[in-house]
Design a binder for these strands. Structure first.
Lengths: 199, 199
DNA sequence: TCGGCTTGTTGGCACTGTGTCAACAAGCGC
DNA sequence: GCGCTTGTTGACACAGTGCCAACAAGCCGA
């Protein structure tokens, strides 16, 4: 919030770009896409509005970069495939997911629900990619490295379940972590045992 | 698309309002929230733009009405609780859900993902209400008429699973209806047997 | 130290979209 | 036909966006 009303100062392009991007991440995370203007981002960064367009082109491109960092930051905490039998592996992948999503709750949950603008083709693609990554992790952790398209689709469905369940826990507070954990492990085992064979 | 370029004609307020609303539903369904202007809606209805504001106030209020009809039209097809044992009831509630969602696929799936504007408090509330209704139906169909808050939260999570799975079927085409059916019934039974007792 | 040059940065222009409102006129009753 | 109600219009003011020429911060050679 330091407005830094002093002289204009030249920053290296990368530094300035990242500074603006961080402000945009914060603002788009707090309010939606429509309620944040490029002028707000510029003012938050203590910069002329035209500079935002200079670095990011259009407002939608800026927003794409924003949800990209929101979604890839938690995904960067990739883990190795845990050893053990199936229930153990399911347990640890669920724990890992809950750890990640609780640490970056506002970012991840906000972005995965397209915090401001779904229906747009480009935004949808970025979100779909993030879901694909999460689905891949589920499949490999479970020991079924990408078999067919149907299995991958089912894994994406499971990610949808995990997301909505995490929202009940973190945003609405109507579920405890233990309940979420139990729900996600039980359903994951059911899917692996009973419905994945159909694919 | 008949532009009806003739004289201006007076309609009764309800008729005019619904005419504009139907055009808005179509347009918001096709493109997103941001890509549809009130001028587009007005032109589609063969009407001055100011009239849209006269009937709906602001653009966001118009959009709220739009997603309200998108979500409540399928929900209006409420069914009675089917008889039979648990697997039978689970089977029929899943079938009913798939029938409804496939018939109104573009509307329901588009709106439930907040086709254009999530993160907004009012929009989120309308969507949350629709999910609550669906969760109630699941609970009653399964024979657990709203017990505790946690069970209801779990039912909402299941609706999230059903939604994301239906999207894999109807929008991406990577799952067949039979696969979706199997997945949703198996997970529902698991949840009723193993995780609902924790609530 | 000073002038020149590169380029990060600014402010203003044109345009679109939104909300509001006084004025207009369609269609009814007298 | 006349007047009144009120559905409907067009224009105004304003906010937000994208673009671009002009400006100046800071480095380099003289």
């Amino acid at each position: 919030m330091s407005v830094d009303v002093g002289q204009r100062r030249r920053l290296e392009p990368d530094a300035r770009r990242e500074q603006i991007l961080l402000v945009a991440v914060r603002l788009f995370g707090e309010r939606g896409y429509a309620d944040v203007s490029t002028g707000d981002v510029a003012r938050g960064a203590g910069v002329a509005r035209g500079l935002v367009n200079h670095y990011f082109g259009t407002k939608k491109e800026l927003y794409l970069d924003v949800i990209r960092v929101m979604l890839t930051v938690p995904a960067s905490a990739l883990t190795l495939v845990p050893p053990g039998d199936l229930p153990t592996r399911a347990d640890s992948i669920v724990s890992w997911f809950l750890d990640v999503v609780s640490r970056h709750s506002t970012s991840w949950l906000g972005a995965i629900t397209a915090g401001g603008m779904a229906g747009d083709a480009d935004v949808d693609r970025v979100i779909a990619d993030a879901i694909d990554v999460a689905a891949d992790q589920v499949l490999t952790a479970v020991g079924l490295p990408v078999h067919g398209g149907a299995q991958h689709a089912m894994a994406r469905s499971y990610v949808g379940l995990a997301t909505s369940t995490a929202r009940e826990w973190l945003q609405r507070g109507d579920l405890t972590r233990a309940q979420v954990h139990k729900l996600l492990t039980a359903t994951l085992l059911t899917m692996v045992d009973q419905v994945f064979p159909d694919a």
